[in-house]
């Protein structure tokens, strides 16, 4: 087998953002299910959290390609 260790590192680094995205949307869904009228308040917060968590994952992807 051949390959670079960067790709393994990227694979490991996706665990965190993946878990984070799952937690964010789980909390969002249960919040909306309890109080449907709170959706417009919760939606931007959920998107902000998702964007920040996902930014780290894509950061890892870029670093895996950039670092030699």
């Amino acid at each position: 087998m051949t390959g670079t260790l960067s790709i393994v590192g990227f694979g490991l680094s996706t665990i965190g953002p993946g878990t984070a995205t799952g937690l964010i949307f789980a909390a969002y869904i249960s919040g909306v299910a309890r109080q449907p009228e709170a959706r417009s308040i919760l939606q931007p917060i959920a998107f902000l959290g998702f964007a920040l968590a996902e930014a780290l994952a894509i950061f890892g992807l870029v670093l895996a390609f950039v670092l030699k």
Partner: peptide, 16 residues
């Protein structure tokens, strides 16, 4: 990273 987060903020968070 800063510019894409700013764009997301403008498009989805501030307007909402």
């Amino acid at each position: 990273l800063a510019s894409s987060l700013y764009l997301i903020w403008v498009r989805f968070i501030r307007i909402d």
